[in-house]
Amino acid sequence: MWQDISLQDVLIVSTLMFFSGVYGFLTRRNLITMLMSVELMLNAVNINFVAFNYFLHPENMQGMFFALFVVVIAAAEASVAIAIIIGIYRRFKSINIEDVSKMKF
């Protein structure tokens, strides 16, 4: 069953996840959704870490720990990002990214 899953399969899944994240980040107008897309990208990278560790160097644990770090940092990043989004909402009464375009020439 799950022993049949190869490295390639996992990489395909993570690539799909990563590019759905990129797609979401570029097309969604809602800041929260964009943040979720970023999380998606981060987790795709996480999967890569774990997968490479498991399939290529099963005797080591670095990949696993890296994944743990990324999870923690992603949590911190999410909290900061949400704080920024709240700030933006207070300022512009909107979380639509197209309304937030003050910083230009």
Partner: peptide
């Protein structure tokens, strides 16, 4: 070239990607 700085975040991200 200053028109390139539009303030639209997703334009920047698109150029970046």
């Amino acid at each position: 070239i200053k028109g390139m700085q539009s303030g639209q975040l997703q334009q920047y991200a698109f150029a970046f990607v």
